[in-house]
Nucleic acid binder design. Structure first.
Lengths: 343, 343
DNA sequence: TGTTAGCACTCCAACTTCTCGAGTGCTAAT
DNA sequence: ATTAGCACTCGAGAAGTTGGAGTGCTAACA
């Protein structure tokens, strides 16, 4: 329904605004020569585009800036993805070094990402869905405390302090750990809780003197949710963006960044693939002035983590999207190889 | 060398400025009634105090604000520490729950601290000086990779991915781990590197087929420095301080906060006890507008960590210092008990 | 009929000017 | 020694001024 010329115009206006952060006027646009029409014509078209809701003015005699609808159209229809060969291979290079666990790799990728874009990178997870128990170890520290160490097949290590039941003795503890390892190695972490109640209860009853106590003890290890970790990187890069000249925006931005649970909410239920949320499209009030681009990392239909970039609505969508796409693909492949290798 | 009256005046002026962030004028001060003299007299004294370098003016007809020398004098001589009974016991309560490792407790304390003061809390370490190896575990993930897990007597867990040497077989690996655990458990982590070269080399030669390879392999585990961790908490609280109305200050502040190595430099060589650095007293350029209060956590002469508060020069020194002192004592005691218990 | 030049109008941003109040330093009186 | 009084200073904020970049509309043009 938009004419060829309107499309071109919309594209050029948004590109220009993304580049300069200044409202775009007809005169300047005409002078640039990208559009073979006079300023007056451009003005007319601009008025139409505004009527259609793609552009808006800050005040009656300012240039036009893209509306959220405008950005949305731009993202959905006007961007031809550019592939960023330059950065291809970053992840696999990290993997090849062989000294990082998966979580570290995700984190490092995000740092690179925020460096490359000067927006803020936020990473969720990777969650332990689908990762399997490789080994459980319980190391007693004193008579009352021990540390439980859980290693997964992805090289991830979780640990947690636990208090030991009074009655348990060293040999029982050893037996317990052996049973667990025999029975539970290879089981996806998520399913541990179920199995724990069904199969384990029986077995433990048979082998252990102090069944009751041991059970309670294990609960502390397996039945608490392991915390989801959020990494944020590059917040100070973003302060250079002119939209942050407003001190209140800075305040509310950092207040959000400090609330881990809000960030988790932001990234938690992302759908597969790249998803772009512009301004008020997002339900979280605090980022109504921002755009958020998320890409969920998946392994066999399971979401195991999310990489996201948070920036001003005036974001370099073209660059960011292709970058994130590339990175995401690479991560997925890497992930696939990884699991295949470790199984 | 300062008269009684000058001391009183200095005290009141700084207190007032810390409270209101506004330059303090003679008239207002006289009206408040804390000083039984007229505004004119106060003016004269103020002029003297300025000449002595304790006060300064923003411009020729503004009220007085404390100079750095003024703050220094205030901190050194005019503060009578108030004990904060209210918050006593926070740490020991956390410890009693028995489910946190030492590092978590430090971190949580710092969060509380920043919440209580609305300044930024920075914590370094605790470093692994003096903590002893409790157990080493090597869990193979694939034919080429494994994860090495190191548990200390404080309940701290370090882990790292390592690539396995081609030639090594499962039984050798097991032997290796056994040797290490037999020989190295109880050794302070810092000394591992030395012992590794002296004693271990011999032993390994005797027991292992593939001595050369195993040695190289272990290097990766023991000879890399484990990273010092920095936790920062409460940065957004601080934005509410009026000194942060200047956007450039905010920018430079957050740029600093993003540089982990700078922060480490800031806290690394703190002397025992509480140390207050005001503005330019600190060598790090980026915090010349701030004051930093550090308290190093010690165990038997060794610095094992640092808690610090970063705030504007106009800081509530009285409150902050006593709070930090209390917390620090509590931590040290806790630490002492902890080690005693775990040894 | 689509395009363009021209013109009157709008509005912000940046700059100046003005005013006011809170502050000072100095002097003379107490 | 202390204080009251007075002239002076300076910055913060209000009010006014200007210029430029923008618009919308109309009329002329290909």
């Amino acid at each position: 329904m938009l004419t060829e010329r309107q499309l071109l115009l919309l594209q050029v206006i948004i590109d220009d605004f993304i580049d300069t952060a200044h409202p775009v006027g007809s005169r300047v646009l005409a002078k640039k020569g990208t559009i073979p029409f006079s300023a007056a014509t451009i003005r007319n078209e601009m008025a139409d585009l505004e009527e259609l809701g793609f552009l808006e003015k800050m005040h009656s005699s300012s240039g036009r800036i893209p509306s959220e609808k405008g950005y949305r159209y731009y993202v959905d229809h006007l961007i031809k993805p550019v592939s960023h060969n330059k950065y291809r291979g970053i992840v696999s290079k990290l993997v090849q070094e062989g000294i990082y666990e998966f979580e570290q790799i995700v984190q490092m990728s995000a740092e690179i990402l925020s460096e490359l874009t000067s927006y803020t990178a936020i990473i969720l997870g990777p969650e332990i869905f689908e990762t399997q128990l490789k080994q459980l170890q319980i190391v007693p520290l004193s008579s009352q405390t021990a540390v439980a160490v859980l290693v997964t097949n992805t090289g991830h290590v979780e640990h947690r302090m636990v208090s030991l039941p009074e009655a348990i003795n060293a040999s029982d503890l050893e037996k317990l750990v052996n049973i667990i390892n025999q029975k539970l190695v290879g089981i996806p972490i998520v399913k541990l809780q179920n199995i724990f109640y069904t199969e384990m209860a029986d077995i433990m009853k048979r082998y252990l003197d102090d069944y009751e106590n041991s059970l309670n003890y294990l609960k502390a290890i397996f039945l608490t949710d392991y915390p989801v970790k959020v990494y944020v990187s590059g917040t100070s890069n973003m302060l250079m963006q002119p939209e942050f000249n407003d001190i209140d925006k800075v305040r509310s931005f950092y207040t959000l960044m400090d609330k881990e649970d809000e960030l988790i909410k932001l990234l938690k239920d992302s759908t597969p693939g790249i998803e772009v949320t512009i301004g008020n499209e997002n339900e979280v009030e605090a980022i109504k002035d921002f755009s958020l681009i998320t890409s969920s990392l998946r392994h066999e239909e399971e979401q195991i983590g999310t990489i996201a970039l948070l920036g001003p609505k005036r974001m370099e969508y073209r660059k960011v999207i292709s970058l994130l796409k590339g990175l995401s693909n690479e991560m997925t492949n890497t992930l696939y190889m990884w699991y295949k290798d470790k199984e």
